[in-house]
Amino acid sequence: MNKPQDDIDSQIEEMLAQEGYGEADTMAPEAEETLEDQLEALRAERDQFRDRFMRALADAENARKRSERDRKEAENYGGSKLSRDMLPVFDNLQRALEVVTDEQRAANSGLLEGIELTMRELISVFAKHGIKSISPEIGDKFDPSVHQAMFEAPVPGTKSGEIIQVMAHGFMLHDRLLRAAQVGVSSTPKS
């Protein structure tokens, strides 16, 4: 038997001895049965309390684990709405830098340098918070888990399912997709 049960049994025997029931031959048979019934009831109650305690302990451990998991999720993904709202800022800065001509670059070098610095800072903040860019290239294979097909067109010299145009970069927040990369995909080219 286990230690707590042995302790309870020995305490009950001590109490019986103090009451004068220590010797079996001095005890009346009906009193012995009554004490045995009481002892059995106490053991059943003890087992019931032990079972309830173990269940409560398991519930508390499960609550602790759930709380820890929720805390980590909130820490990693709590800012996903703000992150999604910042993606158009990235897109607009990128578009601004892509349309600049050499003449404009020479005439407005300070302004363009400021835009480039802002873009680098935004990318740095994204990296600091676990946001990674999905930057497909023309000719890459279309992957529906990270790409969104905006259109499909038959283009000679390509294979079906190849990316033929990239309209917007996609982004991941840790291991979750914030926004799929928006791409054009080649369909089966006409012969």
Rank of each mutant, 00 (worst) to 15 (best):
G110I: 07
A127M: 07
A41L: 02
E68Q: 07
G130S: 09
Y77T: 03
I131R: 01
P189Y: 04
T101P: 09
L112F: 01
P88E: 06
V155Y: 00
A41W: 12
K190W: 05
S124Q: 09
L57R: 15
P88R: 04
E98W: 05
G20P: 05
E61M: 12
M27Y: 10
L178E: 00
G161A: 02
Q5C: 12
H129G: 08
I115G: 04
S160Y: 08
R95A: 11
V166F: 06
T188Q: 12
E73V: 14
I138A: 15
M27W: 10
A127C: 05
H174K: 11
Q165W: 11
E33C: 14
L111E: 13
V125S: 14
E45W: 11
A153N: 06
H129Q: 09
L42T: 09
A31C: 15
A127V: 04
I164G: 07
D85I: 03
A180M: 09
R105N: 14
I134H: 02
T26F: 06
T118I: 03
A168H: 02
A41H: 13
D25P: 01
E152S: 03
N108L: 14
A107T: 06
E30V: 15
I164N: 07
T118L: 09
T26G: 05
K65N: 08
S124E: 15
H174D: 00
M27R: 10
H174V: 09
T34Q: 07
F151D: 11
M86C: 09
V89A: 08
E19P: 03
K128A: 01
M150T: 02
R176N: 05
A28I: 12
P136S: 06
E36S: 15
D25R: 13
E19F: 11
E33F: 12
A28N: 13
Q48N: 08
A41S: 07
Q94L: 11
D85P: 01
D143I: 02
F171W: 01
L57Y: 12
S187P: 00
R71E: 11
D47P: 03
P144F: 00
E152R: 00
G78D: 06
A24Y: 05
D25F: 06
P144K: 04
R43D: 02
M54W: 09
G79S: 11
M150F: 09
G20A: 03
K3T: 10
M119D: 07
K190G: 05
E137S: 07
D102C: 02
F53A: 11
A107C: 08
T158L: 02
P136I: 04
Q182P: 08
R120G: 05
S160A: 12
L82Q: 15
F49Y: 12
P156W: 02
L35Q: 10
M54E: 14
S145C: 13
D6T: 04
V125F: 00
L39P: 03
S10I: 11
Y21W: 08
S187Q: 10
R52I: 12
L177Q: 06
E23W: 02
K3V: 08
L111D: 14
E162D: 10
M119A: 02
K3M: 04
F142W: 00
Q94W: 13
P4Q: 11
T158W: 00
R120M: 05
Q5R: 14
G78L: 04
D6A: 04
E116H: 06
F142M: 01
D143L: 06
R69F: 10
M150L: 09
F151C: 13
R43M: 08
Q148V: 08
D70S: 09
E23F: 13
L111S: 14
E116D: 14
